[in-house]
Simulated assay, not measured.
Amino acid sequence: MSKIYGYVRVSTKEQNPDRQLVALKQAGVSAANIYMDKISGKDFNRPNYRKMVRRLTKDSVVYVKSIDRLGRNYKEIMDEWRYITQVKGADIVVIALPLLDTRRSKNLLGTFISDMVLQLLSFVAENERRNIRQRQAEGIAAAKERGVRFGRPRKPLPENFYGQYDLWHSGKCSLTQAAKACNMPISTFYVKCKQIKQEA
């Protein structure tokens, strides 16, 4: 009897995997045999995916909702697909595309069609990943041009900072004394002083 597994992947912890889980359960995969990673699809170094693959045998079937849930790197998707189907001898079913079901049409024509579709979809998955990254970079650049700041908000300077800066700058106290009076690390105080000089 075949052992049925399911694989679910979302790129971040905030993303919701429910649609994938529902599709796998509807396909007959038990919750105990569903493996999930919340990580990028750029490669296959994913703990739960690797755990699932280690369990595969010749009578296993792996269900995945769509090819981009398996991965987003063209070459690695192809390599992993061949490893599962040829080395492990297991089958793969892509729920969203019935043509990608290695249990069917194991003759030469069926394999040829399946390989062509897989190559096309793997290319699309990687291309979409590249497009997402480019759109993100363009969005960040445009936001920076509009003056949007990224990262943690800056801490306000201590009220006595400018007074201590003047004392240090005029040589009336040392850098260490000025930083200590502001309750700041020496390096932070110095960097802030350099910024003020540049802005002046």
Rank of each mutant, 00 (worst) to 15 (best):
R46I: 02
A141Q: 08
R46A: 07
L70M: 11
A23Q: 04
Q195L: 10
M78V: 04
T176F: 06
E126G: 10
F150K: 12
K106I: 04
Q134P: 04
I67H: 01
V61E: 06
M78I: 10
A200V: 12
E80Y: 04
I67D: 03
A23N: 04
I84Y: 02
D115K: 14
A143L: 04
M1Q: 10
I39Q: 08
G110N: 13
F112Q: 15
L100W: 00
Y5V: 03
S60G: 10
V148R: 09
D166H: 14
T188C: 07
R103Q: 15
K88R: 07
G171K: 15
Q15E: 14
N45P: 12
Y74C: 08
S174T: 15
F189G: 13
Y190E: 11
E80G: 10
K106D: 13
Q20A: 14
E126Q: 14
Y7N: 11
K38C: 09
K58A: 12
A200N: 09
Y165Q: 07
V10Q: 10
L121V: 05
Q164W: 01
L118W: 00
N107Y: 03
Y83W: 07
V29A: 11
P47V: 11
D115C: 01
A143Y: 10
Q20G: 09
G151I: 07
R154A: 08
R130L: 00
A200D: 13
K172I: 02
S30Y: 04
S170L: 03
R133A: 10
K75F: 05
I132V: 07
S11T: 15
R103A: 14
S174I: 08
A27F: 05
E199K: 15
